[in-house]
Design a protein around this nucleic acid. Sequence first.
DNA 1: TGGAACATCTTAGCCAGTAAGACAATTCCT
DNA 2: AGGAATTGTCTTACTGGCTAAGATGTTCCA
Lengths: 151, 151
Amino acid sequence: MFHMEPEALERFTWYMREQSALTVMFHARVAEQMGLSATDEKCLDLAMRADGPLTAGRIAELSGLSTGAVTGVIDRLERAGYVRRVRDPHDRRKVLVEVTVGDVDKFGAPFEKARDSLVEVLGHFDGAELQVIERYLQLQIETFRKRVIDT
Amino acid sequence: MFHMEPEALERFTWYMREQSALTVMFHARVAEQMGLSATDEKCLDLAMRADGPLTAGRIAELSGLSTGAVTGVIDRLERAGYVRRVRDPHDRRKVLVEVTVGDVDKFGAPFEKARDSLVEVLGHFDGAELQVIERYLQLQIETFRKRVIDT
DNA sequence: TGGAACATCTTAGCCAGTAAGACAATTCCT
DNA sequence: AGGAATTGTCTTACTGGCTAAGATGTTCCA
């Protein structure tokens, strides 16, 4: 455990904040590019990052929207061709939201640009350094989720 | 320059994506905690991260909202006590939006938790490793802004 | 000085959001 | 097994923020 000077912590806080703002802008770009509202893109992202298909109700929970709003979201996503409604064969009350776009990472210029810039950034580091960065990212995600989101 | 295996790139892409989703959730938490909509919080964040006070019009540009919408945003932020309207003495058409909350980082539990988890994460690295991470963050922010946002 | 350009605010109309309840399927309980 | 309670989604009525267009007040410049 290394003790950190206050100025260093301040710098890192600034990085976090900056990264955070850029991320919000990025999502706005992606949504615009895909012809979706921020809300719809957010829900689509949830559906894509999930293991299996999500139910409409689960999307409501995860997104914080009402179930009625989610009905509208899925309507629009379905009309735009990004997802498909499938009734759950085991419980026919449920509606499974299946993402129909094979590889959405390939969808839209912002994703490609993001991927490119990631490659460019990582190209500046050697193997040992990449290990440090990877450890940092894993720890950061895990800790942030545990301490900030899941509470 | 180090050549990267495809699986490693895939892992890093996943980290980016995960971080991105967590960030969006974080902003939602902050907004909720402050009693603001996502839009209002986004605009307040813009005003806080700027060097000097922003004009209403500049906030419209940066946020992508119409000027009419920004009028409403500032109304709500002002009523909630986060900002104050000040007419620009040099150009009295302009409205400068002054953030009135001294240190907004101290505002709300989510910010504190985020700060705590940052300290916790960084505590797992020694000085040399922190330098690598800092270099990574700087490069990441700079590259991402240049390649993804400013185009 | 008078008109064009500019910055913000106001207004009307629209669309997405919530809350409450309807409908359909499932589960529980006796 | 059969009716009641529960669950999951959709529908409806209503609210509120957003856009577009125009009004108002200010500055710039010929």
